[in-house]
């Protein structure tokens, strides 16, 4: 049985926003349960607006209003063997103890997160200083050179300003920045959406190689199923705030169970394939007012009466595979 380093139980949460004077709650993450094993890649897939990024923010502990956690727990086993409950810690504690050291976050659009007025090396020095690591300048520069060359960047990058680098290079710098303290968990939120195919391959291979060498775990959030196929050991499919299916990537791609996963896999276009594909009809639901019962039922081709009124329960097929759909509860 693989060891878990992060487990998320019945996590519930979302955003509290005002529409006019009315206070509404956007239920972006609803009853999510999963665990992250040691040394694995867990993918989180789903359409935009299904709560993938919100889930990442919650795991990272960046719970700043309007984001609220309503229930559930996120526990992490630290490098020292301590078990911490991220959602019980204050934001300052999370900053000191968790960020960069235990969990690193590669944000969406990561090419635009660098400070435009600072040279690349100064951005790194800031991070070292924040975590109270004292290094003299030459030592830091030496260390930086090593880190950057492992990511395939020329050494002159450390003296450059962000605008002098191309998008792909900036992205690699941000990745290097997030890996400096050898975190055990990396949360990558759409690390490659804004770049083209060749850069995408480069960045993904670098991440993959780094992870395999350091035996860290990666939570990869993306809507691009080919990225998941390339990287993941296991995939969690999210739809409208629920994890509707979770399983090993081979199983998910070969034998998708949930009707949404099936539609998703069928809609994928493969290279050198001209056969007509059908997309999924209908629109993703409004999370302020989600449909009753199963949130997928208005678009589901296999909809039954029970789906319209009651939320489906989670059915475990084996230890590491579950699906949340009424189709699979009756037969077992």
């Amino acid at each position: 049985m693989p060891k878990n380093i992060l487990s998320v139980e019945n996590l519930n949460g979302g955003y509290e926003v005002f529409v006019g004077r009315r206070r509404v709650f956007v239920h972006a993450v609803d009853d999510v349960t999963f665990s992250l094993h040691n040394n694995e890649v867990l993918g989180v897939a789903g359409e935009s607006g299904c709560g993938k990024s919100t889930l990442a923010k919650m795991i990272y502990g960046a719970i700043i209003p309007p984001l609220l956690v309503k229930g559930g727990s996120i526990s992490i086993t630290t490098k020292g063997g301590e078990v911490l409950n991220i959602n019980k810690l204050s934001i300052d504690e999370v900053r000191r103890k968790i960020w960069w050291i235990e969990i690193s976050y590669i944000p969406q659009n990561s090419m635009n997160v660098l400070n435009p007025l600072k040279r690349i090396k100064d951005q790194f020095i800031d991070v070292f200083r924040y975590h109270g690591i004292k290094m003299d300048k030459t030592e830091t520069v030496e260390h930086l050179r090593d880190t950057l060359t492992t990511l395939g960047l020329p050494p002159e990058v450390i003296n450059a300003y962000p605008h002098q680098l191309s998008g792909g290079m900036r992205q690699r710098v941000v990745i290097a920045l997030s890996l400096v303290f050898n975190p055990r968990i990396i949360l990558a939120d759409e690390p490659t959406t804004a770049v083209d195919v060749v850069t995408q391959r480069t960045i993904l291979s670098l991440l993959k190689e780094w992870r395999e060498n350091n035996k860290s775990s990666l939570v990869l959030i993306s809507h691009d199923m080919s990225v998941h196929a390339y990287m993941d050991d296991r995939i969690a499919i999210m739809y409208a705030g629920n994890v509707v299916e979770l399983g090993s990537s081979l199983d998910i791609f070969k034998e998708p169970l949930h009707p949404y996963t099936r539609a998703l896999i069928e809609s994928l276009i493969r290279k050198g394939d001209k056969s007509i594909r059908k997309g999924l009809a209908g629109q993703p639901p409004d999370l302020i007012n989600p449909p009753p019962g199963c949130r997928f039922h208005p678009r589901c081709p296999y909809v039954m009466n029970i789906c319209r009124s009651e939320e489906p329960v989670t059915t475990f097929l084996d230890n590491d595979r579950y699906v949340r759909c009424w189709l699979y509860t009756s037969s077992r």
Binding site: V197, V198, T199, R201, S226, H228, Y230, L250, R270, K271
Partner: peptide, 27 residues
């Protein structure tokens, strides 16, 4: 052919069959 080779396919079984790519250098 380099461009065609770097297209990722939605199929996990092909994962180890992609050839290595050379990252693009200064534009």
């Amino acid at each position: 052919s380099a461009l065609l080779n770097s297209v990722l396919e939605p199929d996990p079984s092909l994962r180890d069959k992609y050839p290595a790519v050379k990252p693009s250098s200064l534009e």
